[in-house]
Design a protein around this nucleic acid. Structure first.
Length: 489
RNA sequence: CGGGGCGUAGCGCAGUCCGGUAGCGCAUCUGCUUUGGGAGCAGAGGGUCGCUGGUUCAAAUCCAGUCGCCCCGACCA
């Protein structure tokens, strides 16, 4: 149906690339692995930022900005952290370019004494600063977030899901006690869960990462895992309890109430533009993307239909007051009054771009005193009297928001199933059957073996999973809870 | 880093095997007719054929080199 989009059935990852391109969310940059986020994609990110920023502020966090460049020596201070990021760091080694007689290319000049790492994440530079800002328990907790770009030199990239440079927010908090920091890490995990469910209409499983999967430098890593339509898992957000690891590496101490010197306890947490990709893969269909109303720049997309200027005047006479009413109610809309496009083209484009609700008004509607509402996610068309439209539209948008969640949740539930033996897991993964709930008591090496043999990784140890005794599917050791194994992005 | 594909107009491609001075579709611009599911007709503009070198009277095409991008896999948010 839609031009230039490979159907999901035929090739899911090609579908994803096609949809991102056709909906004008992003474009490839001349630099390998980098992407340009186009206005349509950036609009979604901006709505995500607004919602998240508000949630952070309500939780007591403030925004700041730390620099892009990190001295190489900083990154070297925390052992696990270095190991985790060393291989994917971009370095700045020179301060300029010079023209050399007889050569057409410019040549680097002004070699730096110490190379600067372009931040893959900002723990190190932030803790170097926190050292100066924290002396007393009275300075704690310190709750700072930053919106920034980071660079990780990945081997293989995918638009939004993994690019060399990406946009994100990273919260970095400092606390007087381990309990308080742990609680903060979990609190922010809940913020992410709420955001995913209520704004993105994307159900997630919240929980703990295994030893093998946690953040380099963390004591505990929490995450939310979502299921894409191809039943693969996507990590959609992480929150780390860092213990005193960074405090020790950067010598950040405070005097407690008993006048003792103690290392500070830390958390960090982040979500990235990857969420835009998650949104596409959660709700999109063969005709384009579908943006949930709460993240749509224009939840209502109005298409006037007319043949001549009299009709146009009549149609606009009905449409404009209605749009003004929507504006008064704080409902975002766009009026597509481009004269040179036919309505049919606009309908198709509107579906491609994923505007959740289309508002059509033509001469026939004017005559009947009605407007036509078309829901993007199920193509349902309904006529509503002009008098009721203003009350009806917010209701429809709410319904769309919750139906999108329900639909995604049905997929997640349907493809999440208990698996009792290792053989069964292997078969399940061969069939791409989704999330496998397994009893597990293995170590890091066991995890690697499972990944090697089944391509599945231990995605998450659910926080609200039922306690239930059983036997580890690989080692046979006793286990008190099931974990999620799945193939992942 | 392995496997595959590709570089020719803004985009998608044909032309390459078999050398002869570049073409198609979409998009763009102009005009007229259109407009309730991706409009039609007529006309117009737009290309150092990724780059470098070689062979040849003549290279998008043959030869040698080189650069880059995409997809799939291993690694990762």
């Amino acid at each position: 149906m839609a031009k230039n989009i490979t159907p999901r059935e035929q090739d899911y990852s090609q579908w994803y690339v096609d949809v991102v391109r056709e909906a004008k969310l992003a474009d490839y940059s001349p630099v390998k692995g980098c992407m340009v986020i186009r206005p349509n994609g950036y609009a979604i990110w901006e709505k995500m930022q607004q919602a998240l920023d508000k949630m952070f502020k309500e939780a007591g966090h403030v925004n700041a900005y730390f620099p892009l460049f990190i001295p190489q020596s900083f990154l070297e201070k925390e052992a696990q952290h270095v190991e985790g990021f060393a291989l994917e760091c971009a370095l700045v080694t020179h301060s300029g370019l010079e023209r050399v007689e007889g050569e057409s290319r410019l040549r680097p000049t002004g070699k730096l004494d110490e190379p600067l790492v372009i931040r893959p994440t900002s723990e190190t530079i932030i803790w170097a600063m926190y050292k100066n800002w924290i002396q007393s328990y009275r300075d704690l907790p310190l709750l700072i977030n930053q919106w920034a770009n980071v660079v990780r030199w990945e081997m293989r990239t995918r638009l939004f899901l993994r690019t060399a440079e990406f946009l994100w927010q990273e919260g970095h908090t400092a606390h007087a006690t381990a309990d308080e920091a742990e609680a903060e890490a979990r609190r922010m995990l809940e913020v992410y869960r709420t955001f995913a469910e209520e704004y993105m209409a994307m159900p997630v499983i919240a929980g703990l990462k295994s030893e093998g999967q946690k953040f380099p430098g963390a004591v505990d890593t929490y995450c939310i895992e979502a299921m894409m339509q191809d039943k693969k898992a996507l990590q959609a957000g992480t929150s780390h309890y860092l213990g005193q690891n960074f405090a020790k590496a950067f010598d950040v101490t405070f005097q407690n109430e008993r006048n003792e010197l103690e290392y500070v306890y830390a958390t960090s947490w982040g979500v990235s533009t990857r969420l835009v990709g998650a949104l596409v893969m959660t709700h999109g269909d063969d005709d384009g993307i579908i943006v949930p109303p709460r993240l749509a720049a224009w939840p209502v997309y109005a298409v006037p239909i007319y043949k001549n200027s009299e009709q146009k005047a009549a149609v606009m006479g009905v449409l404009e007051p209605l749009l003004a009413d929507l504006k008064n109610r704080g409902i975002g809309y766009r009026l597509d009054d481009r004269d040179q496009m036919t309505p049919g083209f606009k309908f198709a484009e509107c579906e491609l771009m994923g505007h959740p609700l289309r508002l059509e008004v033509g001469p026939k509607d004017v005559a009947k005193g009605q407007v036509v509402l078309v829901m993007r996610h199920n193509r349902e068309k309904r006529s509503v009297s002009l008098a009721q439209a203003v009350q009806e539209i917010p209701k429809v948008l709410d319904a769309v928001q919750s139906e999108l969640f329900q639909r995604a949740n049905t997929l997640l539930t349907k493809h999440t199933a208990p698996v009792e033996t290792y053989d069964e897991l292997r078969r399940a993964m061969e069939e791409d059957s989704g999330f496998a709930l397994c009893h597990w008591a293995g170590n890091r090496e066991d995890e690697e073996r499972v990944q090697e043999e089944t391509k599945a990784t231990l995605r998450v140890i659910p926080l609200d999973g039922q306690r239930e005794m059983g036997k580890c599917i690989l080692t046979g050791k006793p286990s008190s809870q099931r974990v999620v194994f799945a193939k992942a992005y």
